[in-house]
Write a protein that binds this DNA or RNA. Structure first.
Lengths: 350, 350
DNA sequence: CAACTTTTGGCAACCGCTTGCCACACGCTT
DNA sequence: AAGCGTGTGGCAAGCGGTTGCCAAAAGTTG
């Protein structure tokens, strides 16, 4: 009934902007409670510093006025913003959703605002954000940073940050235990009788991509497998077609793919070409993103607690910001991985 | 040569925390350029207000010092924060990722920071966030708000906001053209020979859920179909099992499901139970989320430009904040929908 | 060249809150 | 009773900008 369109015409009357009512300030509260603003400030931030009776009066006044301190003003004078920026290379990638979810959750629990930034896989944008936001964030979480070691070192000197999935000697880091994961995956392939394996590479600037390949090559060689490598490919399902075709051409029967997005794309292409998975070719993805369990066939993949990794990253950053908790904040957290075996892997073709 | 760094040297003592170097302020720039701070401020915000030569000097100085204005301080005095809060009921839901992506993109283009908030499907949290952040955001975008009409009306009076997928007479709204979508879907089902149809309901507090059901019932009845309704179910894949079982029990051969998440969950359950889709039952989802194209079978679903909807919402909000653009800001935007037919729908069983 | 208009840029008062420093009051000790 | 320690709360100086107001400088005009 209440048709939204009808009202639209009338609503325009008062000029477009909704007028903001004046919000109560700390002064209003102070006045109402009969104390100085400084006392109000202290009552709210360091309650033990003020007499319980006074504090009660102040809290009452604040409640009555519905007072909310301005984080801006707070930040201005105290120097801390109570915000943390989370930089991800591609907000489009479900993998980062998981980490964002983790950071969001933990930050909220700590009463800190999350500033989400998409750096579009570019180190320039990353650097730029780091610079522009240095005033508006107390710290940074860099997911899969594209920065060079030198840049990272420099940046980490001037602002608190923690990196995720990007080794760094200069900043605390949380990492996925990639080496172990790759080894597990190769073990799985080996036990299914695969001899020719292929690594499907992701972005060359990705540190974890480099790591994965390195371990892959080492371990596969040690096992006496025939090792191939194709790529790099953009970590998107749309790149899967090219990757699938190239993979087939290598003659490998088992592929370990940089990430699930790419792996799912390959699955689609392989199906389209009539190449059966896993009968003709086995595919192992990485990250166990949303969708990996219901794609066709369900994807065998390297799982790890991504969301938890996000939470850990936040904890590490917060510890860094809050020197109270002993300056012995951990510098490295390694998240365990395990292989989740679904239906995209099977015995090597005869 | 007042070196801004000299002052910082003493600040080093701490230890664990990375020490922040003192950042140049507008005063440093003013000094270096030989002008007053007010001039610097103006040169940066209203360039035409200052002599080109002076401005050049200032810009040069700013660049040399690597000056970045503090958004906090800016906000304090000017009253605007240059941030917009986006409230979503569940950051875990891929549907919202799309909209977040849209808002993020558009906000960034406008140089506005996005504050992402997960309200956990709760109207209390939503209200709370709206209240707590009124000082830290210039405006709000409420995705699928859980607020009552009255609450919404009240809130929209005190702060600029736009709602998404939630009709409102009090605030600008962007909506998905649900009625048309449902009708398209029913038409599709009808043309495939289905006579018994079922609506699988989502959260009762969701406005779009109510809308969908209303139109579903009307239109299906008009077509002389046997209409069923089951639910409510949480919009998650995990609720799909219960939904699938209930749907089967109704005897319906075609289901229109509140959203893709739920639909995909149903697909999984149906497959597990050996009920073939679409041979035994057709399923239509809604939203065309990530994964809908590669689940098994690929899901027929109601598509709409969600990401674009996010962008539109931002534009509407920005227009509201910026009265310059004529106060004729649109009050309602309806995003078109279309049915994306994949493989989860087919002829009704004989 | 004087009178007048328009630019341009400085002064200073905030914006709302934090915090170092100090004063007062109260309760104890000696 | 004087001396003190301690707990409380006020004063006021910022934090880093913005902006209304005004005066000096520059440009116009008759």
């Amino acid at each position: 009934m209440a048709d939204p369109a009808t009202k639209a015409s009338t609503a325009a009357g008062s000029g477009a902007g909704a007028q903001r009512e004046r919000h109560p300030t700390i002064r209003d509260v102070a006045e109402l409670a009969g104390v100085a603003t400084s006392t109000v400030s202290r009552a709210l931030s360091r309650p033990e510093r003020v007499n319980p009776r006074t504090r009660a009066r102040i809290e009452e006044a604040a409640a009555e006025l519905n007072y909310v301190p301005s984080s801006q003003a707070q930040g201005l004078s105290s120097g801390r913003t109570n915000a943390v920026a989370v930089l991800v290379p591609d907000i489009t990638n479900p993998f980062y959703f998981d980490i964002i979810r983790g950071t969001q959750h933990q930050l909220k629990a700590a009463g800190v605002t999350q500033l989400l930034v998409d750096t579009e896989e570019s180190s320039e944008m990353e650097l730029d954000a780091l610079h522009k936001m240095r005033k508006s964030a107390d710290g940074f979480i860099l997911a899969a940073s594209r920065l060079t070691d030198a840049q990272l070192a420099e940046v980490s000197q001037s602002q608190p940050l923690v990196t995720f999935n990007r080794a760094s000697t200069s900043a605390p880091t949380v990492m996925i235990d990639t080496p172990s994961a790759i080894i597990q995956a190769l073990e799985h392939l080996a036990s299914l009788g695969h001899h020719k394996v292929c690594y499907v590479a992701g972005p060359p600037t990705s540190w974890s991509n480099q790591m994965r390949w390195k371990v892959f090559e080492e371990d596969a060689t040690k096992r006496g497998m025939e090792v191939h490598r194709i790529g790099p490919y953009a970590p998107k399902t749309t790149s899967g077609a090219a990757a699938a075709d190239a993979a087939v051409r290598t003659g490998a029967t088992g592929c370990i793919v940089f990430n699930d997005l790419l792996a799912i794309g390959m699955l689609q292409r392989l199906k389209a070409r009539g190449i059966r998975v896993p009968e003709d070719m086995s595919i192992i993805g990485s990250d166990d993103i949303f969708g990996a369990d219901f794609c066709n066939p369900p994807l065998t993949t390297i799982s790890s607690p991504i969301e938890q990794a996000g939470r850990v990253a936040v904890s590490m950053l917060l510890a860094q910001l809050n020197p109270l908790s002993g300056n012995a904040s951990r510098q490295l957290a390694v998240m365990p991985t395990h292989l989740t075996i679904r239906e995209s892997t099977g015995p090597a073709p005869a």
